[in-house]
């Protein structure tokens, strides 16, 4: 007996909006992005202005997050640091998603020897922990903003290749791919106008989770000194700078850590919320 219950499923959007976690996550992420974009106006001080008289001041009215060992305002540095951290995260994830998905769709669509080579290559890449991989690449390429983005993007590629390939294989099982071929459509058209839109849900969900992971990787690399060179502020870098005085001046590390934590929570809520909203079986 086939009931028509499925047809009454609320749309993905409606369900997404009903999910409190997702909305909270989006709010959190949006606040961080706005803060990063508006850093030049929001920051009360120049993030790199040193003042020997203000070294290691605890949080007060003039310096809400306190100051660091050079007398720089931590709040301003966190705001400016958000720009680098989020920028690196977004750009590297985007690059990883685009390249990885393209490779995955092509491999899944054509199958055969191309597919087997791609699977073998991703297996090798995936066998390195993400951080080690990033470390290795930055060490070889040298620490700079561009290289950092490349390094983190490369760690994201194999995961998206895998996902896109798997989803494409599932789509290939459906007759509409054959229908398109029968209608004389080119392979490129079928792959990117028909298969891709049907697997985009899953890609977007995974991308939001990977974004969190990319930002974390950047912070970790910055923490061990393999990010943008000082004095440019990045979250991981600020945590690192505060680490030497962690017991005397914990605010230097705590506030950027909280910023990282907030983005992590926000993006994970977004990812989980989207997954629930796009999964037809997840209907409440």
């Amino acid at each position: 007996m086939s009931t028509s219950a499925a047809e009454f499923r609320p749309s993905v959007l409606k369900r997404a909006l009903r999910s409190g976690g997702l909305l909270f996550g989006i709010a959190l992420v949006v606040v961080m992005i706005v803060a990063a974009i508006a850093a030049p106006w929001l920051a009360p001080h120049d993030p790199n202005a040193q003042d020997v008289l203000l070294v290691l001041t605890p949080p007060d009215a003039a310096h809400l997050f306190g100051t660091d060992a050079f007398g720089r305002d931590v709040l301003s540095r966190v705001l400016w640091g958000a720009r680098i951290s989020l920028y690196v995260g977004f750009v590297s994830t985007l690059a990883g998603v685009i390249i990885g998905t393209a490779i995955g769709v092509v491999a899944g669509y054509y199958g055969g020897i191309v597919d087997r080579l791609v699977v073998a290559a991703t297996d090798v890449l995936l066998s390195f922990p993400q951080l080690i991989m990033g470390l290795l690449l930055v060490a070889v390429l040298g620490a700079s903003l561009g290289n950092l983005i490349i390094a983190i993007a490369v760690t994201a590629i194999p995961a998206f290749v895998r996902l896109a390939r798997g989803s494409t294989l599932t789509m290939r099982e459906r007759d509409f791919v054959d229908a398109c071929r029968t209608l004389g459509f080119s392979d490129l058209r079928i792959m990117f106008l028909h298969v891709l839109p049907n697997i985009l849900d899953e890609i977007v969900v995974m991308a939001s989770l990977w974004l969190a992971s990319a930002i974390r990787t950047e912070a970790t690399l910055a923490f061990i000194g393999l990010s943008v060179p000082p004095p440019t502020a990045t979250w991981g870098g600020i945590v690192r700078e505060g680490f030497d005085n962690l017991l005397d001046a914990p605010w230097m590390s705590i506030f950027p850590s909280l910023a990282i934590l907030a983005v992590m929570i926000g993006l994970n809520l977004v990812g989980d919320g989207l997954r629930d909203a796009t999964d037809p079986k997840g209907a409440p």
Partner: peptide
């Protein structure tokens, strides 16, 4: 083949699967 496909077409068993839902 492209030219031939204008003249030879196919109807599938499961129309739900043979149409792109989007």
């Amino acid at each position: 083949l492209r030219a031939l496909r204008r003249r030879m077409q196919m109807v599938f068993q499961d129309p739900a699967s043979s149409l792109d839902g989007r």
